[in-house]
């Protein structure tokens, strides 16, 4: 489904702030793969997701989604294939617009915007049903401005928006990191349900090693702009946090269990 081939990205080249964030990353995702991504701060996790989403273009390498080469497509054109949930709950929704307006915008992802009505009457019923799945009481608040919702509610709504129209690829960038543990668990639970129901090909960054192990059928670890570990199938099911830390030490050649990685 996703084919990333040997991509490189350097920010601020030629300046004192030069930072090579991706060094030859290659990654292939099969249809229906749910891959969790872990790694310390600055390892290149978010950069990898942004590269796929098209926030900017990569310096080298190629990216294709479902057989379509998107390497040179701008962000808004790739949106046709991609659903995204950001780390910042403020980023995925329009605060000054109503819940149903946000959903209606998402329902038209990747389609031309015409002079037809922004929300058709029959859509509302559908949205009400879908919001019930989130179990946050939002189904009765269709016309509430999204800015009045809590971070958790906004993240859950963003998740629903990202998957409202089945995406070829779902990108989750630490989408529970800014939430309190209880809310984070709820949003993660909703994620699991939606991904399983629609068998979505998913790439999920997390700072929480336990989550990375529990969820998905494959786990990759990044370090210094490269993928240093790739575990899937039975091996992943048997994985423990201790294993991961040990493997991190092996892969990076450092014996210090990175506190940042552990505590996230």
């Amino acid at each position: 489904m996703l084919d990333v081939k040997n991509i490189y990205k350097t920010f601020n080249p030629g300046t004192v702030n030069e930072k090579t964030a991706l060094r030859g990353v290659s990654l292939h995702l099969e249809d229906g793969d749910f891959v969790t991504v872990i790694g310390g701060n600055g390892a290149g996790k978010s950069t990898l997701l942004n590269a796929v989403a098209g926030t900017w273009l990569v310096d080298e390498g190629s990216i294709s989604i479902g057989g379509v080469d998107v390497t040179h497509l701008p962000e808004h054109k790739r949106a046709k294939y991609i659903g995204r949930v950001f780390q910042d709950p403020m980023m995925g929704t329009a605060a000054t617009m109503q819940i149903e307006e946000n959903l209606a915008l998402a329902a038209r992802r990747g389609k031309g915007r015409t002079l037809r009505r922004g929300i058709a009457r029959e859509e509302r019923e559908n949205y009400r049903e879908l919001l019930k799945i989130l179990d946050l009481g939002l189904e009765d608040r269709l016309t509430t401005k999204v800015g009045l919702l809590s971070g958790g509610q906004r993240q859950a709504l963003t998740l629903l928006m990202a998957t409202l129209q089945r995406p070829d690829l779902l990108l989750l960038d630490e989408h529970t990191a800014a939430l309190d543990p209880k809310t984070a668990a709820k949003v993660l639970d909703a994620t699991e349900r939606i991904v399983n129901k629609d068998k979505l090909t998913t790439l999920m960054i997390t700072h929480n090693m336990k989550d990375a192990i529990i969820h998905g059928n494959r786990l990759i670890m990044m370090y210094d702009g490269q993928i240093v570990l790739d575990i899937s199938g039975e091996d992943k099911k048997k994985l423990t946090v201790e294993d991961l830390l040990a493997k991190f030490g092996q892969a990076t050649g450092s014996d210090e269990a990175d506190d940042k990685l552990l505590l996230g």
Partner: peptide
């Protein structure tokens, strides 16, 4: 009327949150 259409909503979304608009495939 216009700001209630798909195109008008896209325009409002652009002003409200450009990131979100682009993630929904709107050419901001």
């Amino acid at each position: 009327w216009f700001f209630g259409t798909e195109l008008g909503s896209a325009l409002r979304a652009t002003g409200a949150n450009g990131n979100m608009a682009r993630a929904q495939g709107i050419n901001t």
